[in-house]
Simulated scan of single mutants.
Amino acid sequence: MTDNVGWPTLAVILAAGQGTRMRSSLPKVMHAVGDRPLLGHVLAAVEAAGIEQVAVVLGAGGPVVADYLRQAAPTARLFTQHEQLGTAHALLAARGALQAHEQGCVLVLFGDSPLISAQTLSRLRQALIDGAAVAVAGFYTDQPGPYGRLLVEDGHLRAIREAKDASAEELQVSFCNGGVMGLRADSCLWLLERIGKQNAQGEYYLTDVVTVANGAGLPVTAVEVEEDDVRGVNDREQLLAAERIYRQRQANL
């Protein structure tokens, strides 16, 4: 394990989703679990992991979220994704922060994943310190359903296949994409700018960074985490599920 001195970290939190399935005028990331908004839990994990710099990408509901961030994370840099063209496009909306962060690690998080832990962030960071250009959080599940599949060969992550683009054989894979990802700062922008949109949705998938990195001969790895750590909230039912898990965790402290 390499010492992490000299590896400054930038966390980019993607919070531009419209959250239409929440059936509420309140921006999705502002719905509460426990005593704080979903986004607040992500910020708390970032702080607990000792991450020095934070950028947040806003979209629909931007002013409400921005007002919250000015109170909860006054040093965070705020960016806006003006069109919804996919997760890689959302990350590139924070280009100013990425360009300024030339060394160390970039961790990509989601503002609607309130159960993320500082330990998961630290493990992704460590994978980059240990030599990976890209490190992806993955989890095993008996119900992979709509999740992207992590295609691993000989210990190396070769691709992330979105369920809608996966073959019948790939859909049998139970190791799934948790969304959270780490990239080395010195190759991050180079990789992002080479992502295309040749897929079923015609969007720029952040997951395609794995294929681009492999094609360039850069090392890519998957870091196994607990499914709950990367559980997202997209509707009221998932919000209630996150609340239950959060309360269980609090009771076990």
Rank of each mutant, 00 (worst) to 15 (best):
Q103E: 13
Q126C: 07
R95Q: 15
Q103F: 06
H101C: 11
E203K: 10
V152K: 06
A127S: 03
A100M: 04
L128Y: 06
S167A: 08
P144G: 05
T141Q: 07
H156T: 10
G131D: 00
Q103A: 15
Q172A: 07
D142P: 12
L121A: 06
L109H: 07
A166E: 10
S167P: 11
E83L: 11
R184D: 01
C176N: 03
Q198E: 13
G104K: 03
I129G: 06
H101G: 07
Q172E: 12
V136N: 07
G202T: 01
A88E: 00
G96K: 02
L191V: 13
L115S: 11
A132G: 05
G148E: 02
W190F: 14
L107R: 02
V134D: 01
W190H: 12
N199T: 02
L151A: 12
G104N: 05
L115R: 13
R125A: 08
I160K: 09
E203W: 15
G182L: 02
M181A: 05
L91S: 01
G111D: 07
L157V: 01
F79H: 15
L107N: 08
Q84E: 10
R125K: 12
A90S: 15
E102D: 08
A94V: 10
H156E: 07
L121P: 12
G155I: 06
H89I: 03
L128P: 02
S174E: 11
G148C: 12
I129S: 06
I160A: 08
G138T: 05
A166P: 13
L115M: 04
I160P: 14
L124I: 01
L98V: 14
G155D: 00
Q201V: 09
F110Y: 15
R184K: 08
A159G: 03
Q84M: 14
L150W: 04
F175P: 00
A93S: 02
E162R: 09
V134H: 04
L151C: 12
Q84G: 14
G131H: 02
C105T: 03
A159W: 14
V108G: 06
L109C: 15
V134A: 02
Q201I: 05
G111P: 10
A132K: 12
S113C: 15
A168Y: 11
Q119F: 13
G86E: 07
N177D: 08
R123Q: 12
L191A: 02
G148H: 09
E170R: 05
Q103D: 06
F175V: 07
Q119S: 15
S113K: 14
L92V: 08
L121E: 04
S187K: 09
P144R: 09
L171W: 04
L85D: 07
A94G: 04
S187N: 10
L85S: 05
Q198K: 15
L109R: 09
G148P: 10
G182S: 01
L85F: 10
D130W: 14
Q103Y: 06
L151M: 15
G96Q: 07
R149F: 13
L109A: 03
G111A: 07
V134G: 03
H101D: 09
C188S: 04
Q99H: 05
A135L: 04
A88K: 08
Q99S: 01
